[in-house]
Design a protein around this nucleic acid. Structure first.
Lengths: 108, 108
DNA sequence: TCAATTAGTGCATTAGTGTGCATATATGCT
DNA sequence: AGCATATATGCACACTAATGCACTAATTGA
């Protein structure tokens, strides 16, 4: 006896309770390293960041842009340089609400 | 002036503070749906679960096995059937500690 | 033992993502 | 304007992951 439950409703629940895109942006080997690196380094330009990673600068640029789109980092352009820093507020909030919602859903 | 910070240390921090593999297992479109589906349906066999998804049963089987390896669901074999249910404890704990550690790291 | 049922596995195909190079764009400086 | 510097983008390639099909393994029941 299968409890007829709609996967569509699951998608909706997820959409409303966990920012999957944000977590996907975080849970990548390179991007998570970038995030922790920025968390401990403060605000840096793409060039400075890329110096500390093995990947090509263009690759780092793309990863940072990706994380910026989902709120994990903040971007600031000054002249021809682009600075990045972690978006503390957003990160803490996203983790916090996801955690709370999961707890509420699972009732523990 | 680049603050000489070692990406290796970042990897270590992540490894010790966030279970990236667990989150990667969760943050997949199909697997997150499976998880929420199970959360609201209780314990079901692979066949019953697969009936509610468009993917082939073998695909569902593999996704469940994947999540089981990282603690998101619990597996129980009875005869020729295999039952799955969410691992509430692990999920709540993983989200909770990740959230706490992030907050501690970012100091907010 | 044999057929039926349930789940797991091997394999080929497809889709998605990461990567680096070359080039384009934007900005600053002389 | 002309050149140097910093970043972004187009493109091709490599690698990983998801998927479905066919087949195998395990278990049940007649």
């Amino acid at each position: 006896m299968t409890p007829k439950y709609d996967p569509e409703k699951c998608r909706q629940w997820i959409e409303g309770n966990i920012d999957i895109d944000f977590f996907r942006a975080i849970c990548d080997p390179v991007r998570s390293e970038l995030l922790i690196f920025l968390a401990s380094s403060g605000e840096l330009t793409i060039g400075e960041i890329a110096e500390n990673f093995s990947q090509n600068r263009s690759v780092i640029s793309r990863h940072l842009d990706y994380m910026n789109r989902f709120g994990a980092v903040k971007r600031r352009k000054v002249g021809r340089e682009v600075f990045y820093q972690v978006d503390k507020q957003t990160i803490v909030t996203k983790f916090g609400t996801a955690s709370e919602n999961m707890k509420a859903l699972l009732g523990q």
